[in-house]
Nucleic acid binder design. Structure first.
Lengths: 122, 122
DNA sequence: AATAAATTAAACCATTCGGTTAATCAATTC
DNA sequence: GAATTGATTAACCGAATGGTTTAATTTATT
């Protein structure tokens, strides 16, 4: 049981963390890498022009958003992608899909239409 | 022509901005509100326990992520949701769908099932 | 013309972010 | 058991975030 004044983690908290985690290209790249299979921290860090601690921090962010899981085996930490929160984010976006879809369709038709002599607007 | 050293805005830049914009619950709430129709800045700000300038800043973030558009009409700024970047974000998430899908399908069925006497799982 | 309204701009503040290097710790290997 | 490896922690740094309050700006109202 949580010891002191500790608010319950809400769905909003989770979205905060997930979207924040996704808002960094290094972290997205890490996810992309992990999408092809689990990997050790050092291997994950290798392609990046930054220090190991930096990558370690990124992984911690991903982990606290529950986007990855890690299995500690001896001194090596094996990271793997974990999908559920992405699904939440996807659902959130999905919520708006109905809305855009129609607008985008219209926009797309407009944009892709034979270039008519441009009217003011904007 | 861009005056000085000015990098071209990449798709990654765009994802950075969109996900960052979505990573704040106030901004998500603003989007939610706007999903129901355009609104003036003051009206958008009303429900929030924060100053108008604060909301104004949030709107600027949403705007620079191209998630909203604004039409200035006299002294009132009318904001409206703009869907395209959300679509990009959705596409990005979609990219991972193959991976989760199988894992999550089962979970989704479970979660959305008629409330059965809850079994463990997580 | 004076005032009020809608909004942004500016200056400021505390906190978080993303990175660094150096130190630490635990598990292997020689 | 001493050195090496895999990884985190700690301390620090500059820049960005999210908020504030106080102007400033522009447009509308009376």
């Amino acid at each position: 049981m949580p010891s002191s004044a500790q608010r319950k983690a809400t769905a909003e908290d989770s979205l905060d963390r997930v979207f924040h985690a996704l808002a960094d290209r290094t972290r997205r790249a890490l996810l992309a890498r992990l999408a092809q299979g689990p990997a050790r921290v050092t291997d994950l860090a290798a392609p990046f022009a930054m220090s190991l601690p930096a990558v370690s921090k990124h992984l911690k962010v991903l982990e606290s958003a529950a986007l990855i899981e890690r299995a500690v085996d001896g001194r090596v930490h094996r990271c793997a992608i974990a999908a559920a929160p992405l699904k939440d984010a996807g659902r959130w976006l999905e919520h708006y899909r109905g809305f855009w879809e129609e607008r985008l369709e219209a926009l797309a038709r407009f944009v892709e239409a034979p270039a008519k002599p441009k009217r003011g607007r904007r």
